Amino acid sequence: MPQIPSIYEIHDDRFRHLIVGSAALEELYSDCRWAEGPVWFADLNCLIWSDIPNQRMLRWAPDGGVSIFRSPSNFVNGNTRDRQGRLVSCEHGGRRVIRTEIDGSITVLADRYQGKRLNSPNDVVVRSDGSVWFTDPTYGIKSDYEGYRAEPEQDTRNVYRLDPVSGDLEAVVIDFGQPNGLAFSPDETKLYVADSASSHDVNAPRHIRVFDVVHGKRLANGKIFCSLDNGLPDGFRVDIQGNVWTSAGDGVHCFSPKGELLGKILVPQTVANVTFGGPRKNRLFITATKSLYSVFLATNGSALG
């Protein structure tokens, strides 16, 4: 019988302990224009993700297939859940971060900084203290494809922290080309942030930076964590061992907590984002160009990552 090509590329033997060699890459849906922002709802046993150019959010359930979660979505990109289980999303169209309440109503968490409109919030995470951290590149205002063309009002493209008590918005990093995906380490002492500026400038960064989180409010000691050898980093997540699983041009790249490339999951389309899900958080869901994929792993997603 012909040998089935492996979906894995091993760069370090440690990667063999993180994957299930017999697990297949499953295509769960294939009718998106640009799939992004996957978030798992364990209590509802479903995944929600964004199809940005099509102005919709989709829902996948193991026993129910795919359905529309929200349309029009106002060009929602990144999604996460807060500690109360509410959906927190980044809107390109509204240039804001919103929260979907339990009753379905929408609360605007942030849309301006120092009196000026945000660029186009891209990806978001919520820390265990309830603070909301998000990135604000200009992708959603560059054209009318993933938002509405506009001139940026902010002088820089920042990473922000929204205080859960006061509601104050603070720019915690202001020197990114295009800040994109972000995730905390399992113990929340570090924050990883992607810079995907090479999407429009081949000489710009295509790396992930890592920062120390100081007292849960500030970032310090920023440095390059890893650089990609194919494509650029967009969205990513962290497993319980602190390994970083990031989107890339040829699939999903896995880096050790020290920034060493351990291996790759090869995907036939450019990957935009990933998240861990399933009852044991050992299923990696992958949004890649027009499709939603998944693959079972031998590791589990970080509860805080």
Rank of each mutant, 00 (worst) to 15 (best):
D250F: 05
V252K: 00
N243L: 09
G249I: 11
L232M: 15
I286R: 06
P279E: 09
T270E: 15
K264D: 11
V267P: 12
L284E: 12
V244H: 13
I265W: 00
A272I: 12
T246Q: 08
G259P: 07
V274D: 05
S247T: 10
Q269N: 08
N273G: 07
K290A: 09
G251E: 05
P257D: 06
D239R: 14
H253M: 13
V252F: 05
T270P: 14
G277K: 09
G242T: 02
W245C: 00
A272H: 11
T287W: 03
G251L: 03
S294D: 00
W245E: 05
N243S: 14
I286Q: 00
S291C: 10
A272S: 14
F236L: 04
K281H: 13
K258Q: 15
V238S: 06
G251M: 03
P233A: 12
T275Y: 07
D239F: 05
W245A: 04
F276V: 03
L284D: 01
L292K: 11
T275N: 05
G278K: 11
A288W: 08
Q269V: 14
T270G: 15
T275F: 01
D250P: 05
G251P: 04
P268A: 11
D234P: 10
D250S: 09
T287V: 06
F236R: 02
R283Q: 15
G263V: 02
E260K: 15
V252R: 02
A272D: 12
L261S: 08
E260S: 10
G259R: 09
P257N: 10
L262E: 10
G263T: 03
F236G: 06
L266V: 14
V271T: 03
I265H: 10
I286A: 03
G278C: 04
T289K: 15
R280P: 07
K264F: 00
G259V: 06
H253A: 15
N282G: 06
G277R: 02
D234L: 02
A288V: 01
S247M: 07
I265Y: 12
I286H: 01
N243K: 04
